[in-house]
């Protein structure tokens, strides 16, 4: 008796054709899961940098995430080491710390202490200085800097300007 599971050549060929169709429909299914155009279009936030006060943390929102904006005083700028100062975003002559306000450890939002000029993440005790660099583990790296572009005295988050690209190339941020 012949093996009844043997489909023969045409059975295999038909199976292959059907598989092509199934894969084609998977492409449509994958694309249906993509973020909507309106979501992508809303991925840009423009910040007017002239409104911030020195050494007072402002929290903005970009792509649903908190964004820390900290305008540095002249003393803060002067005290910075080289590693800290490369993280500065300079708009219209003023120095800012702009970063995604989520701890690089597990994503909690650190709080800012204006007296000590540092951030403390309450979840696991990680600490960052006012430039966003790690001063106490567990966070593996400084606060991430979002893509930005300087336009006059505004900062467009979501667009990649030359200053951001430089930070990315030199490994200042991920």
């Amino acid at each position: 008796m012949k093996n009844n599971t043997r489909r023969g050549f045409m059975g295999k060929a038909f199976g292959a054709v059907a598989a092509v169709g199934a894969i084609g429909s998977l492409v449509a299914m994958k694309k249906t899961w993509d973020p909507l155009p309106s979501v992508k279009a809303a991925g840009f936030t423009t910040l007017d940098m002239s409104v911030y006060q020195e050494n007072k943390l402002a929290v903005e929102k970009w792509r649903g995430k908190p964004i820390f904006v900290l305008k540095k005083t002249a003393a803060m700028v002067a005290d910075q080491t080289e590693i800290q100062s490369v993280r500065d975003i300079v708009v219209d002559g003023a120095h800012y710390m702009v970063s995604i306000g989520l701890c690089t450890h597990l994503g909690c939002i650190p709080s800012y202490n204006a007296n000590d000029k540092d951030f403390l993440c309450a979840c696991h005790g990680g600490k960052f200085d006012y430039a966003g660099e790690v001063t106490k583990v567990p966070p593996p790296r400084g606060l991430d800097i979002p893509p930005f572009k300087i336009e006059g005295n505004t900062l467009v988050l979501g667009e990649k300007g030359p200053e951001y690209m430089k930070m990315k190339e030199t490994g200042v941020t991920l």
């Binding site: 449509a28 299914m29 694309k31 249906t32 993509d34 909507l36 155009p37 309106s38």
Partner: peptide
């Protein structure tokens, strides 16, 4: 709007 215009292949479904 959302399904027919925005979602990729939404019209097809």
């Amino acid at each position: 709007y959302t399904i027919m215009r925005e979602v990729d292949f939404g019209w097809l479904w």
